[in-house]
Design a binder for these strands. Sequence first.
DNA 1: CTGTTAGCGCTTTCAT
DNA 2: ATGAAAGCGCTAACAG
Lengths: 341, 341
Amino acid sequence: MRPTIADVAREAGVTKGTVSHVYNGHRPISAPTKERVRAAAKKLGWVPNANASALAGHHTNAVGLVLHKNPDALAVDTFFPVFISGMQAELSQRQVMLAMQVVDSQSAEERAYRSMAHGRADGVVVLDIHRKDWRIPFLAKLRLPAVLMDVPRDYPGFTAVRIDSGRSMEELVDHLRAQGHTRIAHVSGPLDYVHAYERAAAYVRTIGNKELLRQGDFTAQSGRRLTSELLSLSYPPTAIIYSNNVMAIAGQSYAQEQGLRIPEDLALAGFEDDEICAHLNPPLTSVDTGPAERGRLAAQQLVQVVAETFPESVTAPAPVIRYRGSTEGKSPPGDCDPRDV
Amino acid sequence: MRPTIADVAREAGVTKGTVSHVYNGHRPISAPTKERVRAAAKKLGWVPNANASALAGHHTNAVGLVLHKNPDALAVDTFFPVFISGMQAELSQRQVMLAMQVVDSQSAEERAYRSMAHGRADGVVVLDIHRKDWRIPFLAKLRLPAVLMDVPRDYPGFTAVRIDSGRSMEELVDHLRAQGHTRIAHVSGPLDYVHAYERAAAYVRTIGNKELLRQGDFTAQSGRRLTSELLSLSYPPTAIIYSNNVMAIAGQSYAQEQGLRIPEDLALAGFEDDEICAHLNPPLTSVDTGPAERGRLAAQQLVQVVAETFPESVTAPAPVIRYRGSTEGKSPPGDCDPRDV
DNA sequence: CTGTTAGCGCTTTCAT
DNA sequence: ATGAAAGCGCTAACAG
């Protein structure tokens, strides 16, 4: 049988309560007793049973992450591994586990959050918030502590980790304009996602109209399709900003197949920078939103929420635009680019 | 208060035992009773408390993954996200959670496995097996069900998911020889890892000596350093095979900085293909070991192990070599490559 | 500073 | 086919 707290207590000549307190520090224990208990635990190879302690105590030492998406998307999108590694940087220090569940329907998602609330995790990090998101009231009802990523405003009872991506969109447009572009398109993500919406809104605000705005769904396929659609306009754009890199890479590859030179004939930029962007040919300009740091902040906030030291919402460090070859070298109209011969 | 099984029982006019059996099918329940219980549960928003059921029953509906490495490595190495997405493809169907813990020391790793064994998870998947791996006897002692990835032989009481990567090394060497290469180097991973060792062993077997074998550690830095070392030999290699892509990409980038043309002056190939390889300039030849499928198989095996239908060890589909520009176009010695002018 | 004990919410015999 | 009740291993409130 696996050792229980009673075995350790017997071995150390104390009671279960004492052993318990040695491990959670909820009351002072004399040094020699502490030592005896530690020695006994080590000798027997005892670790607290997480289920029993969660059941009795109400802390699981785990945080949850419920992802509503196709498992394949996890493999393609580089945001997740980096975000998760950021979370783990914070969690591994504190020996907190990450309880991850991928679901494929709303009912499964509800069940998953319910089970998190009912003893699986002390709290959750919520990603990909929608503009009208059922999960926020739902989590409130469940009284499940949560950190909301990238919500546009504060929600009572929740803390948030925010990011200002509208600003980056403006900078990107300015940069392209400075290079002489006047027809700048945007391939957005689904506009019911807050992050996609904010980028698109900033785009429309800066450009002044939505003539060249197209709504994609973050997949390579939609990046390709919408690029093709934009390029076959009678008056096509000379620059396209994509709301993520998967779409941008697909767009670049499509444009090159069509014989367009990047950036001379078409400039491209994306959001959610990752290592691949620097290695493309030409390298892709993109916005680094700092996913690792955001993951770390999310975990840090959540740990505090769980500890009942209710933290203020924070804003992640401003995104950084990595300017690369895909937006360089556009000459002002009328000029003649030497490479153009 | 969150609803408990007692609330549901009361609401449905039955006992707790009956509710329990409706949910785990451990004994027949009449249809009408079943319906009443289901309705009551839905009405109250009840889901079984995972801790209580694990404590009483002994199943957690979670599988564990303990990773002993720097969190950053998770972000760089594309193996993990893809492997995990493969696992999730299997787990999400069965509503099984993934309990993930990143640790930074052996003692933390032991604790993590102990806590998995003591109620965190029904079993674990073990990655990055060493040639002499303390975890195997340790897990046996803990009686924690486990699936071992890429072990060279069977271990009594464990099932394994294997892969034949030695064969790919041979093919790669043959391919390079066919293109006229006679000085073929290998930058391996740490040789105490089974996967790195098997590749290196196949290399030595095929080449006949270890003159051009260098031991790296899977980081970009070591890829760069060892490439530099190999290239400054008085009789340097004309081709290098790396044990992972991080090292290969770093090597390619270093070689190009030195003014070498790939593949004319130096051919390169790596293991652990990922999307980035196809987008490099030139695209990198590499071995696709099918991480998603291996993740799926691991999860599938583990689920079976946990269900006590002890499955045979399986071998994953053979790796596929993606031949790309980084190994093409080497002319036989003496010939004159037109591009060489 | 330490001992005692009543649960936490569920599963599972043993009854009926 | 269902009910009753004894724990699973731990925490925390109550004693001392």
